[in-house]
């Protein structure tokens, strides 16, 4: 029978404790996931977004997706905020970011013309509005 020193005992106890805690939490997490969250599996978010599916989509991103997903694939949308998640779902629609703070109407107009923007998304008080932009001639925007 080999003797185990107190230091070794502490070391072994800590290792076993760590493994036991880890295994318990691991399987607890698996059970919790398969019991509670499995409904997410009813979705593939590759092309379609919305409906009953909870994909951690919320706020302005979700509003923008719901409105812009109907646009044609070659649509060019101007956004004044960086909607990273919406950008993921809306591709191949092109989202162009324009930093509105400090910009003049003329700069905005030129940006729209240069990038052939067809749509613009503006947010006010957390509500996103997608509007059609028409460029009537060089440098003017209606």
């Amino acid at each position: 029978m080999m003797m185990i020193k107190w230091r070794q005992r502490i070391f072994i106890i800590l290792l076993v404790f760590s493994l036991a805690i880890s295994l318990f939490l691991k399987f607890h997490d698996f059970f919790a996931f398969f019991y509670q969250d499995f409904y997410i599996s009813s979705s593939s978010a590759g092309t379609e977004v919305g409906g009953q599916v909870d994909l951690m989509l919320y706020g302005e991103d979700f509003q923008l997706i719901r409105q812009a997903i109907a646009l044609p694939p070659d649509a060019r949308v101007l956004v004044v905020r960086r909607y990273w998640i919406a950008n993921y779902y809306l591709y191949p629609r092109r989202l162009y970011h324009f930093k509105a703070t400090g910009a003049t109407a003329d700069q905005l107009s030129r940006f729209i013309v240069e990038h052939k923007i067809g749509w613009a998304a503006f947010a006010k008080e957390g509500v996103v509005n997608l509007v059609k932009v028409s460029t009537a001639g060089q440098g003017s925007v209606q």
Binding site: F33, F34, D37, F38, I40, S41, S43, S44, A45, G46, L55, M56, W84, I85, N87, Y88, Y89, Y91
Partner: peptide, 15 residues
């Protein structure tokens, strides 16, 4: 069981 649904996996890598 789930599609990509966190921030970086969608916005950074999968995009």
């Amino acid at each position: 069981s789930t599609p990509m649904h966190y921030f970086d996996d969608r916005a950074t890598w999968s995009y």
